[in-house]
Design a protein around this nucleic acid. Structure first.
Lengths: 244, 244
DNA sequence: CGGCCATTTGACACCTGTCAATGTCTGTGG
DNA sequence: CCACAGACATTGACAGGTGTCAAATGGCCG
C-alpha cells in the first residue's frame, strides 16, 4: 500500500466509492505541489480574487467571516482531506477568510488539473461533488444548530460531528480525538461567549458526557451525548450521489 | 420583448451577464412544464429520494429542517427566479424540506435538459453556477447572522437582503416590497420566538426604520436600517464568475 | 524570571423565551 | 345577518439562559 492510499482525501472518498488504480493515480497527481502554512496567518481573505484551491493534507484550518463590529463567526473547520477555497476559485473571488489553526500542509490544486481529472475520471468527479455537497450540508446543519439548539446541545453536537468527520480519515473514534482548538474557537464557531463555552464544558464534564482538556476530546458517554445533542449524522453519511 | 425576457430567472441572470437570443431560447425551454403547488403542502421532504428540480416562476417558498423536538429552522426563502432542489437532484436525496408559503408556480427541470443546456451554452452554465454560489453565500451570511447579530439586527438584515433579492427580479425597491410571510416565518428563520419577533418589529417601527404590516414591508429609513444591520450586500452582488 | 495566552470562576445585568390573555380579521355555517 | 372558530398579531409579567466585566490561576516560552 503506497502513501496516497492512506491520504486523508483518499480515505474520505473511499468511504463511499471504491476507487480504481487509475483514479488513485489521478488523486495522487492532485496531491503534488505541497505547501506549508503557518498558524494564524490568513491563507485567503475576504475580497481577495484569483487565489488557488487546496486540499488540506495535514493540520487544522478554519474559514470565517468578520463583522463590521469586529466580531468573528467561524463558518466551518477543515481537517485533513477537506478542500479549501474550491468555491472561491470558481467565482474568482472569496467572500470569507481562511486561516490555519496550527501549522498546516496543503496541496495546491490547479483548476486545469481539476477539470482534467473531472473529464478523464467521471467517478472521481462524482466523488468530489459528493464531498462538496457534504460540506454544504454541514454548513446547513451548523445554521440549524445556531438557530435552534441550546448552548449545551451546540457544544455536544459540535464534538460529535467533528468526531465522525475525523474518524472518516482515521484521526478519531467513538473514544475521542486530538483537538487543537481553543475555547475561543468554539465560542466563535458556536455563537457563544468564551466564558459561557467554559461553563458549558464544565457542565458536560461533570455530567460525565464529554471531556475537552489539554487538546484532547474524550467521549465519556457517547450515547448520552448523542441524545443530548439530538445528533442525527445522516447528513454526513449520504450513501453517495449518482450524478448521471 | 417576449415573455421569457421578463421571467424572474432571466432578469436575475441578466443582472450579471448579457444573454444571447440563443441562450434566452434555452432558458425558455427550461421553463416548460409549469406546475402549481398549494400553500402549506410539502413539495419535497427530508429523506425523499429522486425528486425533481424546479425554477420558481411565481409565489414564495421556503426550505427548512425539523429537529427531533419538533422545532423548525427555516434555512432559506425562495422567490421567483430561484432554483428549488438543485443540489438534492444531484445527490438523489434531499436533506431538507421545501414548502410553498403561498400558492406557487414552478417549472420542473429535467436533469437531462439541464445538462444539455450546460454543454450547448457554457455561458448559461456559468450564469447558473453563479446563481447557485450566490445562494450558498446567502446561507453563510444567514449563519453569521444567527451566530453574531442581535435580534434587532437580524430582523433588519433579513428585510434588507430580501429587498435586494426582490429588486433584482422587479418585485421590490428601496421603498419596500410585498411580503406574504407571517411573524412565525420570521421567527423560525431568525432563531427567535414569534413573540420576540413581534417586539422587535414594534421597536423598528417606532424607531422609524422599517414597517412590516398587512403583508407589506416599507423601508422608512433605508440608510438607518443598513447601519443598524451592518448590511454589506457584496455577497449578493459578485460581479460574476468566470469559470474558464 | 517575566510576560502572554488560555482557562477558570464569580457577580451581575439584560436579552430573549415562555406563559397567558386579549384583540383583530377572515371565512364558514346556521 | 349573526355566531363562531381559527389564524395571526399584540401585549404584559416573569423566568432563565447567556453576555459582560473582572480577577485569579496555570502553563509555556523567550
Amino acid at each position: 500500500m503506497n502513501a496516497i492510499e492512506n491520504s486523508p482525501l483518499t480515505r474520505k472518498l473511499s468511504a463511499f466509492v471504491v476507487l480504481s488504480e487509475n483514479e488513485l493515480a489521478v488523486l495522487e497527481r492532485l496531491h503534488q505541489r505541497r505547501k506549508t502554512f503557518a498558524a494564524g496567518i490568513d491563507l485567503v481573505h475576504q475580497g481577495q480574487s484569483d487565489q488557488a484551491a487546496y486540499v488540506l493534507a495535514d493540520g487544522w484550518v478554519c474559514s470565517y467571516k468578520i463583522q463590521g463590529d469586529g466580531s468573528r463567526q467561524i463558518v466551518d473547520f477543515q481537517i485533513p482531506g477537506d478542500f479549501l477555497g474550491l468555491r472561491s476559485v470558481l467565482l474568482h473571488m472569496s467572500d470569507h477568510n481562511i486561516v490555519p489553526i496550527v501549522e498546516s500542509e496543503a496541496a495546491e490544486i490547479l483548476v486545469t488539473d481539476l477539470l482534467d481529472a473531472f473529464s478523464t475520471t467521471p467517478r472521481l468527479a462524482t466523488a468530489i461533488l459528493w464531498a462538496a455537497s457534504r460540506d454544504e450540508a454541514m454548513v446547513v446543519e451548523h445554521l440549524v444548530g445556531l438557530g435552534q439548539r441550546s448552548a449545551e446541545a451546540r457544544v455536544a453536537h459540535f464534538f460529535l460531528e467533528l468526531g465522525v468527520r475525523l474518524a472518516l480519515v482515521g484521526m478519531g473514534s467513538r473514544a475521542g480525538f486530538a483537538c487543537p482548538l481553543t475555547q475561543y474557537h468554539l465560542a466563535d464557531a458556536l455563537g457563544l461567549s468564551a466564558v459561557h463555552v467554559n461553563r458549558v464544558l464544565r457542565k458536560l464534564r461533570e455530567e460525565g458526557l464529554v471531556t475537552f482538556r489539554d487538546g484532547h476530546v474524550t467521549f465519556d458517554n457517547y450515547d448520552g451525548l448523542v441524545a443530548l445533542a439530538d445528533f442525527e449524522p445522516e447528513y454526513l453519511n449520504h450513501t453517495g450521489p449518482l450524478l448521471s
